[in-house]
């Protein structure tokens, strides 16, 4: 169907050009707008990897840095290609995945026939219902601290049996509100991960709910946290813009 015989390009002057009818270009402000503080909430993914040998490895290590959708949206990759990708995650980005788990993870990922996740389950930033501590834990905490509350050796500390979790409520609240960086010692083991601040991601009720959940799981038997305590600690630490510096700061909060 080539050739101009069946059609014509009309090179006439166009009436009412698209550019002229398109929305007006933005106008620069004559005076600069005020610099207000900007606080946002980012939605969290609750997407899972499909069941199979290797899914547990993927859940333990991949979700630390990125949601599952990143993996599940990839084109089909061979086992060798996945091996190369996983090793890049380990060597370039420091993924704490043990070497012996590379092969089973690569085999698992290359064996997923249909990966697409058309509807990624997500934790809405705000929900009308009372906050669900378990759901918040799944979306916000589990990728690093793991579903069994044991964390990952050397990187992310356990929540199960951790005195930071089961000690004074105000201490656990302050950790969630402002995050932690640098070396932290838990039960004699040291960890070097980075925990972000959840002060803007979660409101007082949500922080109280997730901490109450964590303080009652995996053999923890600490009391629930009241949203009022979160509000008090939020105000008391409002000036803090950086995470707590591990043992150095947190020992003073005990």
């Amino acid at each position: 169907m080539r050739g101009a015989a069946c059609l014509a390009l009309l090179m006439l002057a166009a009436r009412g050009s698209w550019a002229a009818s398109s929305p007006q270009a933005p106008q620069a402000a004559s005076s600069e707008p005020a610099w207000d503080r900007l606080t946002v909430q980012l939605p969290a993914s609750a997407a899972l990897f499909p069941a199979g040998d290797g899914a547990t490895i993927a859940h333990s290590y991949c979700l630390v840095c990125h949601s599952a959708g990143m993996v599940l949206s990839q084109p089909p990759q061979s086992e060798a290609q996945w091996t190369a990708i996983i090793n890049k995650m380990r060597t370039a980005y420091g993924a704490p995945l043990p070497a012996e788990q590379v092969a089973p993870l690569a085999a698992y990922l290359s064996g997923l026939s249909s990966m697409s996740t058309p509807a990624e389950p997500r934790l809405p930033a705000r929900r009308g219902a009372p906050p669900d501590g378990a759901a918040i834990f799944e979306a916000r905490c589990l990728p690093c601290h793991q579903g069994n509350g044991n964390g990952l050796p050397g990187v992310f500390p356990p929540l199960a049996g951790s005195s930071w979790v089961t000690g004074p409520g105000a201490t656990s609240v302050r950790i969630v509100l402002r995050g932690v960086r640098d070396r932290l010692t838990v039960n004699g083991n040291t960890y070097q991960g980075v925990m972000p601040s959840f002060a803007s991601a979660l409101d007082d009720g949500e922080i109280a709910a997730v901490l109450s959940y964590v303080r009652g799981q995996w053999g923890n038997h600490a009391g629930t946290i009241d949203p009022a305590l979160v509000a008090t600690e939020r105000a008391a630490t409002a000036a803090r813009s950086a995470p707590w510096n591990g043992d150095q700061d947190l020992e003073q909060l005990r």
């Binding site: 939605p43 969290a44 993914s45 959708g69 949206s73 084109p75 089909p76 058309p118 509807a119 990624e120």
Partner: peptide, 27 residues
Amino acid sequence: FTNGRRQIVSDFPQKGAMILQRTSPPL
């Protein structure tokens, strides 16, 4: 393209309807 099905989402701050490539970190 193969495996090209994506969600359209509007729950990111200051954003309208967008094609979700990855929730975290956002793409």
